[in-house]
Structure formats: structure tokens, C-alpha cells
């Protein structure tokens, strides 16, 4: 087998393996990663917390529209295994090109929208906690601080049930997802001018 055939075979293997962990989205949007910094949150005012909640909620909503779902630890392990398999498949190409990015790329691609969704969820919950600690007034548009339907209380209930083994991981993730999906329902709709 000559170099060209080897290169072709390696690229084919890579395409096959990476096809299983594609990161493309329906909308073609490239989503940012979220920064969860305690010090950042702890110094944020009620207005700032609410502004960030609306922003992260909107991006999270778009991620969900594109089909993002939370993944269990097992699913994430499978993704990592696929990335490793993909990197191994690229070793022949690496030996021809000596380009180390070829081996790193599969791992970068394995950072999925599920990871972003997980980060967004964690950040939203941290911001909801912050709202309660500071004693912010009920949010006028989102289901926050409006008992008895308060999202934070319901999220805590889910966490407690999961910790007490009353709820399996998949069911707990599903309920958290649904609760956060309904956090800030659609507000004002932009209308075309004229």
C-alpha cells in the first residue's frame, strides 16, 4: 500500500468515526461556551443576574431548538471513546504530515452542544441561587420567585429526589431540562416594520 492509499484510508476512517460525533447544528449557529465563575456571580446585582438569565436562557433555548440534550456520564464516556478512536485513525496521516492538530481535532470536536447545554444549565441554576440569596424581587417575565411554581424550588426537589435514589439519572436530567425549558417563556415578538 503506497502513501496515497494509506492517506486515503486514514481519511476514510476519520470520516467514518467522526461522523458518529458530529458537532454541526441544524441552524448552523456556533455556540459559545459558558463561563461559570463564582466570584463573577457573587458580585452580580439583581439587575445583572436577571440580564444574564435572559441571555443564557435565550442561547440555551436555541441550543434546545437545535436538538441539544443532556447526556449521562456513560454517554460522555462513549463520546470520548469515539474521539480517541478517531485520533488513532488519524495516526497514519500524522506520520505523513507531522501536524499535531490532526490528533487534537477529534477531541475538540467531541466538545458537544450537550456540554454547552450542561454548562448553561449549571450557570442558570447558579444565577437562580444568587437571586434567592440576594433576595431579588420576582422576575416579571420568567418563572423565578413566583411561588408555588418557582423553578428553583422545583429544581431543588429534583436534586433531592435524585440524591435519595427516588429518581434515576435519565429521569432527573429530563425533569431539569423541562423545568429550564419553561424558565422564561417567549416574551415580546419582534414585528416587521411597516
Amino acid at each position: 500500500m503506497n502513501r496515497r492509499e494509506l492517506l486515503l484510508l486514514a481519511l476514510l476512517c476519520h470520516a467514518l468515526v467522526s461522523g458518529c460525533s458530529s458537532t454541526g447544528t441544524k441552524s448552523g449557529l456556533i455556540y459559545p461556551t459558558f463561563r461559570l465563575s463564582d466570584s463573577n456571580i457573587e458580585t452580580t446585582s439583581c439587575a445583572g443576574v436577571d440580564r444574564n438569565i435572559r441571555q443564557i436562557d435565550a442561547i440555551r433555548w436555541s441550543l434546545r431548538e437545535d436538538g441539544a440534550e443532556l447526556e449521562s456520564d456513560f454517554s460522555q464516556m462513549v463520546q470520548l471513546s469515539l474521539a480517541t478512536a478517531s485520533a488513532i485513525a488519524m495516526i497514519p496521516v500524522f506520520t505523513l504530515t507531522y501536524d499535531p492538530t490532526i490528533l487534537i481535532l477529534p477531541y475538540a470536536a467531541s466538545y458537544s452542544d450537550a456540554d454547552r447545554l450542561k454548562q448553561a444549565d449549571a450557570l442558570l441554576i447558579a444565577l437562580l441561587d444568587r437571586r434567592q440569596v440576594v433576595g431579588c424581587p420576582p422576575h416579571p417575565e420568567c418563572a423565578i420567585g413566583t411561588k408555588p411554581m418557582d423553578t428553583l424550588d422545583n429544581l431543588r426537589q429534583v436534586r433531592q429526589q435524585f440524591e435519595n435514589d427516588q429518581l434515576k439519572e435519565d429521569a432527573a436530567m429530563d425533569r431539569v431540562t423541562r423545568l429550564l425549558d419553561g424558565l422564561c417563556p417567549v416574551g415580546r415578538r419582534y414585528q416587521a416594520d411597516g
Binding site: 448552523g28 436562557d57 435565550a58 436555541s62 431548538e65 422564561c184 417567549v186 416574551g187 415578538r189 419582534y190
Partner: peptide, 11 residues
């Protein structure tokens, strides 16, 4: 541009 608004809209 593609945008997402805080009201959960995409344009």
C-alpha cells in the same frame, strides 16, 4: 448576521 434575541427569537 444571525442573531438570537433575549425573547427566544432567531433572525
Amino acid at each position: 448576521i444571525k442573531i438570537i434575541t433575549r425573547q427566544r427569537e432567531r433572525f
